[in-house]
Computed example of a mutant assay.
Amino acid sequence: MTISTGNPPPGAMEDPRRDSPRSDARTDTSSHLLPSEVPVQLVDQDGRHRHDDRYPLPDGDTLLQAYARLVAGRRINDQANALVRQGRLAVYPSSHGQEACQVAAAVVLESTDWLFPTYRDTVAVIARGVEPLQVLTLLRGDWHSGYDPYEHRTAPQATPLATQLLHAVGVAHAAKLRGEDTVVLAMCGDGATSEGDFHEALNFAAVFHVPVVFFVQNNEYAISVPLKNQSVAPSLAHKAIGYGMPGERVDGNDLAALLAVLGAAVERAREGSGPSLVEAHTYRMQAHTNADDATRYRSREDVENWVPRDPMTRMRTYLQNLNLLDDDAEARFAEDAEIVAAHMRDGLNAEIEPDPQELFAHVYARRTPQLEEQAAQLRDELSRQDG
């Protein structure tokens, strides 16, 4: 290791890593970077509280409000699947069974933070406050990303695996350089951890000590590829230690544990302690998308084994046992969720009048000569058809 014995030469750039309050990984045992031996769980599948000294249970009001979003998330998934069958959506990657991860990712962030979702994170984007029809516009195959990322501090849903992680790190790095109180939460699936972009994002985030939380929803399959054929690491969270950041494992169907673990990671980043990796152990209950036949690579028994672990059933039981959730509240949450579903149906059943010229809008701040040429060619072709 080179040790500086004097001031840098005039004009030399200051290393943005110098203010990092890290320990040297080569002299540190790094035991604090290792994740829990078993995923953190605060409420088991029977709705009983499991004490954990490291992560306090969120208060009842927080859990009740998050549960309401959980109910809405399940209804959104079910309604979107119905709209696919009716031909109103081109494709829908359902997060049925993973809604606790979706809700927690949105709830733990402040309005000044950023969320970087994947194609499967529709419920998280809606929970973040984006209007449902704007979110579903992309999956309908219409008009760009569907919503203004800057308005909601939520990036467009990313279909290419892991590419959004690099964008998330860039935003977090820029926020740090500007001295902003901003944390970035970057979502991905287990399949994305096999991509080179995953490595580059985590390595840069750790080296430059940026305020980002990498949130891996490990639902055990990258389309048809099981996790055992992707990685032989003890867990995906163990990958964090290779980059010098802490990793943690959490029960991805336990809403309370997700709020606690993700919340702690977000606060750690906000306090200037750098990035972290959280792996949620969950399961994709439905097919990869409506174009996928999941029966080709997994059995019905495998899916049924996860039914008792359903995040909605678990949190409902816990709240009812503490008299925090009664029939009236349950009915109110269901009614609110149905209003969202009806809005989705009405909006997506309405016919749209596409404007082909919008293909060239919002690609660049100033159109390139090539785009101008293509737009002119299209105008000419359309005018000939109208004539």
Rank of each mutant, 00 (worst) to 15 (best):
P132K: 06
E99Q: 04
P132M: 06
A124F: 15
A106K: 08
W114N: 01
Y67T: 02
A104Y: 00
N77F: 06
A127F: 03
G97E: 12
R120N: 11
D59R: 12
D78G: 01
R120S: 09
Q98I: 09
N81W: 11
Q98Y: 10
P132Q: 07
A105G: 05
V125W: 02
R85L: 09
A105W: 07
A68S: 07
L83S: 06
D113K: 05
Q86S: 12
Y119G: 06
I76V: 12
D59T: 09
I76F: 03
L70Y: 07
V108I: 14
A80P: 03
S94G: 08
L115Y: 05
S111R: 10
Q98E: 15
R88I: 01
L63M: 13
S95V: 04
Y67F: 13
D121W: 01
G87Y: 01
A90D: 03
V103P: 02
E131H: 11
H49Y: 14
L70N: 12
C101F: 08
A105Y: 10
A66M: 08
N77S: 09
Q98G: 08
T112W: 02
N81K: 11
V107P: 01
V84E: 02
Y119P: 00
D121Q: 04
R85S: 06
T112N: 13
S95Y: 04
R85Y: 00
H96C: 07
Q102C: 07
D59S: 14
V123M: 09
Y92P: 06
S95T: 12
D46Y: 14
N77Y: 03
E99S: 10
P56N: 12
A127P: 04
V108R: 14
G73A: 05
D78I: 12
D121M: 03
R69M: 13
L63H: 05
Y55D: 11
D59I: 14
T62F: 00
H96M: 09
D59V: 10
Q98W: 03
A68K: 01
E99N: 09
D53A: 15
R88G: 00
R120D: 12
Q86M: 07
D46M: 15
D52L: 10
L70I: 14
R69W: 13
A100F: 08
P56W: 15
V123D: 10
A105R: 01
Y55N: 09
H49P: 13
A68R: 05
L70V: 11
R88V: 00
R120I: 07
R48D: 13
V71M: 00
L57Y: 02
V125P: 02
Y67C: 04
Q86K: 06
Y55E: 10
R74N: 09
P56G: 09
A82M: 05
H51V: 13
L63C: 07
L64R: 10
T118H: 14
A66G: 00
V84K: 00
R75G: 02
S94N: 10
T112P: 04
A66D: 04
G73M: 05
V123P: 01
P56I: 14
N77C: 15
